[in-house]
C-alpha cells in the first residue's frame, strides 16, 4: 500500500513537471500516429472494436518514443496498408498513399525529436518550428518522387519484372549500406 502511495506521489510530481514544449511535441506525435494508423488500416476495421487498439498503440508510442514501439507501429502501418489493399480490396488512391507516407515519416521524425527531448525541458518555439520545417522539405521532395514513381512505374514495369526485382533487391542492399556507412568511424 505504501509503495502504491509512493508511486502515486511520484506520478503527481512528474505530471507537475511536464513542460508545454515537449507536451506539444508528444501531442503532434500522437496525432501523426493516429493519422498513420487511420490511413493505413482497412476502412472497415476502423469503425469496430479494433479502433481502441489503434488509439492505444498511438498513445503508447507518444508516451514512450524512445523504445522500439515506434518501429513496430510503422511496420504495422506498412503491413496494414498491404492488407487493406490486398485482403480488403481497398482502392489505392493517390492522396491516401501520399498522406500515409507523410504521416509515417512525421511519426518517425517527431519520435526522434521526442526521444532526445526531456519531458520537462525549457524549449524555445524555434526548435520545434525548425525541426518541422526540415521535415516539410523532406516531405515535399518525397511526395514529388512518390507521385512520379506511381505515374511512371507502370509504363516501364511489366516485361522486365524479373530484372526489376533483382535490381530492386540490389538497390535495397546498397541503400542500407549507404545509410549505415554514414555513422561508422
Amino acid at each position: 500500500m505504501r509503495a502504491i502511495r509512493d508511486r502515486v506521489r511520484l506520478g503527481r510530481q512528474l505530471a507537475g513537471r511536464w513542460a508545454v514544449g515537449p507536451l506539444a511535441v508528444r501531442t503532434l506525435l500522437l496525432l501523426a500516429g493516429l493519422t498513420t494508423l487511420g490511413l493505413a488500416m482497412p476502412s472497415r476495421l476502423l469503425l469496430g472494436r479494433f479502433t481502441v487498439f489503434l488509439v492505444a498503440g498511438a498513445v503508447v508510442v507518444a508516451m514512450a518514443p524512445r523504445g522500439r514501439l515506434v518501429s513496430v507501429l510503422l511496420l504495422i502501418a506498412g503491413f496494414g496498408w498491404m492488407a487493406s489493399t490486398i485482403l480488403f480490396d481497398d482502392r489505392v488512391v493517390m492522396w491516401r498513399l501520399v498522406g500515409l507516407a507523410m504521416a509515417m515519416y512525421l511519426v518517425h521524425t517527431l519520435a526522434a525529436l521526442a526521444s532526445v527531448l526531456p519531458y520537462d525541458a525549457v524549449l524555445p518555439p524555434g526548435v520545434v518550428a525548425g525541426w518541422l520545417l526540415r521535415a516539410a522539405v523532406t516531405l515535399v521532395v518525397s511526395a514529388g518522387l512518390g507521385i512520379f514513381a506511381m505515374v511512371e512505374a507502370p509504363l516501364v514495369v511489366g516485361p522486365v519484372y524479373l530484372l526489376a526485382s533483382v535490381g530492386g533487391v540490389a538497390v535495397v542492399g546498397a541503400l542500407a549500406w549507404v545509410l549505415t556507412r554514414g555513422v561508422r568511424r
Binding site: G78, W81, S142, G146, M150
Partner: peptide, 14 residues
Amino acid sequence: RYDLVVLAVPFAVG
C-alpha cells in the same frame, strides 16, 4: 507493389 516504394521514399530521402 509500387505503392510500398512510395511509403519508403520519405525515409530514404529524409
